[in-house]
Protein backbone atom coordinates (compact mmCIF):
# COMPACT_ATOMS: atom_id res chain seq x y z
CA UNK A 1 0.00 0.00 0.00
CA UNK A 2 1.46 3.37 -1.02
CA UNK A 3 0.76 6.28 1.30
CA UNK A 4 0.44 9.66 -0.44
CA UNK A 5 1.63 12.82 1.30
CA UNK A 6 2.12 16.43 0.29
CA UNK A 7 4.06 19.38 1.64
CA UNK A 8 1.76 22.22 2.70
CA UNK A 9 2.61 25.51 1.06
CA UNK A 10 -0.51 27.68 0.90
CA UNK A 11 -4.08 27.98 2.18
CA UNK A 12 -5.67 26.44 -0.90
CA UNK A 13 -3.75 23.20 -0.19
CA UNK A 14 -6.14 22.67 2.72
CA UNK A 15 -9.38 22.70 0.79
CA UNK A 16 -11.19 19.33 0.41
CA UNK A 17 -10.20 19.33 -3.27
CA UNK A 18 -6.60 20.17 -2.42
CA UNK A 19 -6.16 17.25 -0.03
CA UNK A 20 -8.15 14.71 -2.03
CA UNK A 21 -5.58 12.03 -2.94
CA UNK A 22 -3.50 12.54 0.20
CA UNK A 23 -3.66 11.03 3.67
CA UNK A 24 -0.68 12.87 5.18
CA UNK A 25 0.62 16.43 5.20
CA UNK A 26 4.14 17.72 5.82
CA UNK A 27 4.32 20.96 7.77
CA UNK A 28 7.39 23.07 8.53
CA UNK A 29 10.47 23.92 6.49
CA UNK A 30 12.86 21.49 4.87
CA UNK A 31 15.88 23.53 3.97
CA UNK A 32 15.91 26.89 5.75
CA UNK A 33 15.34 27.76 9.39
CA UNK A 34 14.19 31.27 8.47
CA UNK A 35 11.15 29.70 6.80
CA UNK A 36 9.95 27.80 9.87
CA UNK A 37 6.41 28.89 10.75
CA UNK A 38 5.66 30.52 14.09
CA UNK A 39 4.10 28.54 16.93
CA UNK A 40 0.59 29.91 16.45
CA UNK A 41 0.61 29.36 12.70
CA UNK A 42 1.91 25.82 13.04
CA UNK A 43 -0.61 24.95 15.75
CA UNK A 44 -3.42 26.31 13.56
CA UNK A 45 -2.21 24.30 10.55
CA UNK A 46 -2.00 21.15 12.65
CA UNK A 47 -5.53 21.66 13.90
CA UNK A 48 -6.78 22.18 10.35
CA UNK A 49 -4.88 19.08 9.17
CA UNK A 50 -6.49 16.99 11.92
CA UNK A 51 -9.92 18.31 10.98
CA UNK A 52 -9.25 17.14 7.42
CA UNK A 53 -8.24 13.71 8.79
CA UNK A 54 -4.68 14.13 7.57
CA UNK A 55 -1.77 12.55 9.43
CA UNK A 56 0.98 15.02 10.22
CA UNK A 57 4.73 15.05 9.63
CA UNK A 58 6.55 18.03 11.11
CA UNK A 59 9.71 18.94 9.22
CA UNK A 60 12.71 20.85 10.50
CA UNK A 61 15.77 21.85 8.46
CA UNK A 62 19.47 21.86 9.33
CA UNK A 63 19.72 24.20 12.32
CA UNK A 64 22.15 26.76 13.67
CA UNK A 65 22.67 27.17 17.44
CA UNK A 66 19.97 29.82 17.48
CA UNK A 67 17.78 27.91 15.02
CA UNK A 68 17.81 24.81 17.19
CA UNK A 69 16.80 26.84 20.24
CA UNK A 70 13.86 28.21 18.26
CA UNK A 71 12.93 24.80 16.89
CA UNK A 72 12.91 23.29 20.38
CA UNK A 73 10.76 26.13 21.67
CA UNK A 74 8.39 25.58 18.77
CA UNK A 75 8.21 21.82 19.37
CA UNK A 76 7.63 22.28 23.07
CA UNK A 77 4.70 24.59 22.35
CA UNK A 78 2.87 22.08 20.14
CA UNK A 79 0.26 19.54 21.08
CA UNK A 80 1.98 16.51 19.55
CA UNK A 81 -0.27 13.48 19.14
CA UNK A 82 2.10 10.81 17.89
CA UNK A 83 2.81 12.88 14.83
CA UNK A 84 5.96 12.31 12.83
CA UNK A 85 9.02 14.45 13.31
CA UNK A 86 11.24 14.57 10.22
CA UNK A 87 14.71 15.29 11.53
CA UNK A 88 17.31 16.83 9.25
CA UNK A 89 19.84 17.91 11.84
CA UNK A 90 21.98 15.76 14.17
CA UNK A 91 21.50 18.28 16.97
CA UNK A 92 17.72 18.04 16.75
CA UNK A 93 18.05 14.26 16.79
CA UNK A 94 20.16 14.51 19.96
CA UNK A 95 17.57 16.75 21.58
CA UNK A 96 14.82 14.32 20.54
CA UNK A 97 16.66 11.37 22.11
CA UNK A 98 17.15 13.22 25.37
CA UNK A 99 13.55 14.47 25.62
CA UNK A 100 11.49 11.91 23.72
CA UNK A 101 8.46 14.06 22.90
CA UNK A 102 5.36 12.10 21.79
CA UNK A 103 6.37 11.89 18.12
CA UNK A 104 7.81 9.31 15.75
CA UNK A 105 11.27 10.27 14.50
CA UNK A 106 12.10 10.01 10.79
CA UNK A 107 15.48 10.56 9.17
CA UNK A 108 15.01 13.38 6.65
CA UNK A 109 16.47 13.58 3.17
CA UNK A 110 18.95 16.30 4.10
CA UNK A 111 20.72 13.88 6.46
CA UNK A 112 20.41 10.93 4.07
CA UNK A 113 22.56 12.94 1.67
CA UNK A 114 21.95 10.99 -1.50
CA UNK A 115 24.24 12.07 -4.34
CA UNK A 116 21.96 13.85 -6.77
CA UNK A 117 24.05 16.17 -8.99
CA UNK A 118 22.82 15.80 -12.57
CA UNK A 119 26.34 15.77 -14.05
CA UNK A 120 26.57 12.04 -13.40
CA UNK A 121 24.40 11.54 -16.49
CA UNK A 122 27.29 12.81 -18.64
CA UNK A 123 28.92 9.44 -17.99
CA UNK A 124 25.94 7.47 -19.23
CA UNK A 125 27.29 6.79 -22.70
CA UNK A 126 30.95 6.03 -21.95
CA UNK A 127 30.70 4.70 -18.40
CA UNK A 128 27.23 3.21 -17.92
CA UNK A 129 28.54 1.03 -15.09
CA UNK A 130 29.54 4.16 -13.10
CA UNK A 131 26.06 5.62 -13.55
CA UNK A 132 24.55 2.32 -12.47
CA UNK A 133 26.70 2.11 -9.36
CA UNK A 134 25.86 5.74 -8.56
CA UNK A 135 22.27 4.66 -7.92
CA UNK A 136 23.24 3.10 -4.61
CA UNK A 137 22.64 5.40 -1.67
CA UNK A 138 25.92 5.84 0.20
CA UNK A 139 25.88 5.96 3.98
CA UNK A 140 23.11 3.36 4.29
CA UNK A 141 25.06 0.57 5.92
CA UNK A 142 24.19 -2.18 8.38
CA UNK A 143 25.82 -0.39 11.36
CA UNK A 144 23.96 2.78 10.46
CA UNK A 145 20.57 1.04 10.14
CA UNK A 146 21.18 -0.82 13.42
CA UNK A 147 21.95 2.44 15.15
CA UNK A 148 18.81 4.09 13.74
CA UNK A 149 16.69 1.14 14.92
CA UNK A 150 18.22 1.37 18.40
CA UNK A 151 17.21 5.04 18.47
CA UNK A 152 13.68 4.16 17.38
CA UNK A 153 14.00 5.45 13.82
CA UNK A 154 12.26 3.17 11.35
CA UNK A 155 11.81 5.43 8.37
CA UNK A 156 14.11 7.48 6.17
CA UNK A 157 13.34 9.88 3.35
CA UNK A 158 14.96 9.60 -0.04
CA UNK A 159 14.89 11.28 -3.44
CA UNK A 160 14.57 10.34 -7.07
CA UNK A 161 17.72 11.64 -8.79
CA UNK A 162 18.19 11.44 -12.55
CA UNK A 163 20.35 8.32 -12.32
CA UNK A 164 17.69 6.51 -10.28
CA UNK A 165 18.22 4.99 -6.85
CA UNK A 166 18.88 1.69 -5.18
CA UNK A 167 18.40 1.14 -1.48
CA UNK A 168 21.00 -1.21 -0.02
CA UNK A 169 19.74 -4.13 2.09
CA UNK A 170 17.71 -2.54 4.86
CA UNK A 171 16.11 -4.12 7.92
CA UNK A 172 12.70 -5.67 7.28
CA UNK A 173 10.84 -3.21 9.50
CA UNK A 174 12.47 -0.14 7.98
CA UNK A 175 10.49 1.93 5.45
CA UNK A 176 11.28 4.72 3.01
CA UNK A 177 9.45 7.83 1.86
CA UNK A 178 10.27 9.14 -1.61
CA UNK A 179 10.13 12.86 -2.30
CA UNK A 180 9.06 13.92 -5.78
CA UNK A 181 9.39 15.71 -8.13
CA UNK A 182 11.94 18.07 -6.51
CA UNK A 183 15.45 16.79 -5.92
CA UNK A 184 17.87 18.68 -3.67
CA UNK A 185 21.40 19.23 -5.02
CA UNK A 186 22.96 21.61 -2.55
CA UNK A 187 22.42 24.04 0.30
CA UNK A 188 24.25 27.19 1.28
CA UNK A 189 24.31 29.59 4.18
CA UNK A 190 25.23 32.32 1.71
CA UNK A 191 21.72 32.51 0.30
CA UNK A 192 21.79 34.34 -3.07
CA UNK A 193 18.20 35.56 -2.69
CA UNK A 194 18.99 37.06 0.68
CA UNK A 195 22.25 38.61 -0.47
CA UNK A 196 20.61 40.00 -3.61
CA UNK A 197 17.77 41.56 -1.64
CA UNK A 198 19.86 43.08 1.08
CA UNK A 199 22.42 45.39 -0.44
CA UNK A 200 24.06 46.08 2.90
CA UNK A 201 25.06 42.47 3.38
CA UNK A 202 27.29 41.00 0.71
CA UNK A 203 27.49 37.64 2.41
CA UNK A 204 24.00 37.18 3.69
CA UNK A 205 24.43 37.77 7.39
CA UNK A 206 21.60 40.24 7.64
CA UNK A 207 17.92 39.78 8.44
CA UNK A 208 15.99 37.70 5.93
CA UNK A 209 13.28 39.28 3.79
CA UNK A 210 12.17 35.85 2.48
CA UNK A 211 12.52 37.04 -1.10
CA UNK A 212 12.86 33.35 -2.08
CA UNK A 213 9.06 33.22 -1.99
CA UNK A 214 9.01 35.62 -4.94
CA UNK A 215 11.89 34.60 -7.17
CA UNK A 216 13.53 31.49 -8.56
CA UNK A 217 16.36 31.25 -11.06
CA UNK A 218 16.72 28.54 -13.67
CA UNK A 219 20.44 27.87 -14.06
CA UNK A 220 21.97 26.35 -17.17
CA UNK A 221 25.52 25.23 -17.87
CA UNK A 222 26.60 22.61 -20.40
CA UNK A 223 28.85 20.91 -17.83
CA UNK A 224 25.83 20.15 -15.69
CA UNK A 225 23.66 19.27 -18.66
CA UNK A 226 20.34 19.69 -16.87
CA UNK A 227 18.55 22.83 -15.65
CA UNK A 228 19.02 23.58 -11.95
CA UNK A 229 16.70 25.78 -9.93
CA UNK A 230 18.12 28.28 -7.46
CA UNK A 231 15.54 28.94 -4.79
CA UNK A 232 16.63 30.70 -1.64
CA UNK A 233 19.46 28.76 -0.02
CA UNK A 234 18.76 25.64 -2.09
CA UNK A 235 19.85 24.34 -5.46
CA UNK A 236 17.28 21.93 -6.85
CA UNK A 237 15.92 20.25 -9.94
CA UNK A 238 12.73 18.49 -10.87
CA UNK A 239 12.60 14.87 -11.93
CA UNK A 240 8.97 13.97 -12.52
CA UNK A 241 9.78 10.48 -13.89
CA UNK A 242 8.82 8.13 -11.09
CA UNK A 243 9.36 4.40 -11.35
CA UNK A 244 6.09 2.42 -11.33
CA UNK A 245 4.52 2.03 -7.89
CA UNK A 246 4.99 -1.75 -7.92
CA UNK A 247 8.73 -1.24 -8.42
CA UNK A 248 8.88 1.38 -5.68
CA UNK A 249 7.23 -0.99 -3.22
CA UNK A 250 9.78 -3.68 -4.15
CA UNK A 251 12.52 -1.14 -3.44
CA UNK A 252 11.11 -0.53 0.04
CA UNK A 253 9.27 2.75 -0.64
CA UNK A 254 5.78 2.88 0.87
CA UNK A 255 5.19 6.63 0.89
CA UNK A 256 5.35 9.32 -1.80
CA UNK A 257 5.79 12.92 -0.69
CA UNK A 258 4.78 15.50 -3.26
CA UNK A 259 6.44 18.88 -3.20
CA UNK A 260 7.32 21.09 -6.15
CA UNK A 261 9.79 23.56 -4.72
CA UNK A 262 11.05 24.54 -8.15
CA UNK A 263 7.81 26.40 -8.86
CA UNK A 264 6.62 29.53 -7.08
CA UNK A 265 3.20 28.75 -5.60
Amino acid sequence: MMELAFFYRQAKDFTPAGVKPFSRVYLGAEFCEALLPGAKTLARLMEKARSLKLKISLVFPSLSIKGLQQAVKLLESLDLQDDELVIQDWGLLYWFLKHRPPATPVLGRVLVRQKTGPQIMRLKEKFPQVVESSQKIPGFSRPFFNWLLELGIRRAEIENPLQGFLIPDSPRDFAFSLHYPTVLVSLTRKCPAKIASNLQEAVGLGKCGKICQKITGELWNENIGFPLISRGNSLLYNNPDLPPKSELIKLGVNRLVYENLCALS
Binding site: G117, Q119, V185, S186, I211, Q213, K214, I215, T216, G217, E218, L219, W220, N221, N223, I224, L228, S230, L235, A263, L264
Partner: peptide, 18 residues
Protein backbone atom coordinates in the same frame (compact mmCIF):
# COMPACT_ATOMS: atom_id res chain seq x y z
CA UNK B 1 33.85 20.68 -13.29
CA UNK B 2 32.71 21.64 -9.82
CA UNK B 3 29.06 22.64 -10.01
CA UNK B 4 29.68 25.42 -7.51
CA UNK B 5 32.38 27.03 -9.67
CA UNK B 6 30.58 27.23 -13.00
CA UNK B 7 29.10 30.24 -14.74
CA UNK B 8 25.42 29.75 -15.39
CA UNK B 9 22.94 31.28 -17.79
CA UNK B 10 20.05 32.29 -15.57
CA UNK B 11 16.38 32.77 -16.37
CA UNK B 12 14.33 34.19 -13.50
CA UNK B 13 10.73 33.50 -12.63
CA UNK B 14 9.25 36.12 -10.36
CA UNK B 15 6.02 36.85 -8.56
CA UNK B 16 5.03 40.39 -7.58
CA UNK B 17 7.42 43.29 -7.87
CA UNK B 18 11.09 42.40 -8.17
Amino acid sequence: DLGCGLNYRIKFTTRGRI
